Simulated scan of single mutants.
Amino acid sequence: MKKILVVLTNTTRYKGTNGATGLWLGEATEFVDIIHQAGYQVDYVSPKGGFVPIDPRSMKYVNKNIMESYETGDFQKRALCNSLCPQQINPDDYIAIYYTGGHGVMWDFPNNYELQNIAQKIYNNNGFITSVCHGIAGIFNIKDNNGKYIIDGHNVTGFTRSEEMLAGKLKIVPFLNQEIAEKRGAIFKKHRAYKEFVVQDRQIITGQNPFSAKAVAEMLISNLRK
């Protein structure tokens, strides 16, 4: 059975500041829990490989399940301490790729061509490209074999301007997800701030915010079982 590749950030701070950021913990653990329950295995990759920081703000929103997953030796070793680097990945091993969020991804996901090539190959093998929250930043610059942005003409979602405002990060982030998605020809969908919302358009599944990670996983599993 093919696996699912989970993409994590290596960025430790908001660029130009001393503010700490990193992976939004629940966006990884809640997704992976659903994937494991369905009988699929995951690998963890990051742009540089190795250490993955956790956004300290995400620790304020943990629950029992998130903490239990966080405390497992497998997650701490394979995701947080020893994530794979792109050169170690064979795209043929995966049926889907999932881009987690946390503000850090806005700096190290968009222009990582190695990860884009991996995602493109998974997509070309009839696999799925998925993301949640700021993870959509990893999808923006993926192109198909004809050089067209893969989200062009697709319905997508991601962390919204209103959510950035409520998070107090509107003046810090390097771009707004909706603006970039629409520049790439996508149709950006959104619901109420911080409410679960997922969009699927063909082989692309995207979630709006941290509270959508489970729903992205469930939608992916539903497709894989067809």
Rank of each mutant, 00 (worst) to 15 (best):
K15R: 01
Y194S: 14
E114I: 01
Y113C: 13
Q178Y: 09
A193V: 14
Y113G: 11
W107G: 01
D144H: 08
I122R: 02
D93T: 02
N65W: 06
N111F: 11
Y194H: 13
P110R: 07
N146A: 10
Q41D: 05
A181I: 14
G158N: 02
A181L: 14
D93E: 11
I187D: 01
R184H: 10
G147H: 07
N177Y: 05
I151P: 00
Q203S: 05
I150W: 02
Q87R: 05
G16D: 13
D144Y: 09
W24Q: 11
K121V: 04
I34R: 02
M106I: 06
K143T: 10
A96D: 06
K48T: 03
Y194F: 15
Q87Y: 07
R78D: 15
L25N: 10
F188L: 13
N111Q: 04
K64I: 14
Y123E: 01
R225K: 13
Y44P: 00
K148V: 07
A167Q: 07
D144Q: 03
S162E: 12
G22F: 13
Y40K: 03
P56M: 07
V42D: 09
A193P: 00
N18S: 09
V45A: 09
G39Y: 06
V132Q: 04
A28V: 07
V42R: 07
S222A: 11
V32G: 07
W24C: 10
R192L: 15
R161W: 02
K121I: 02
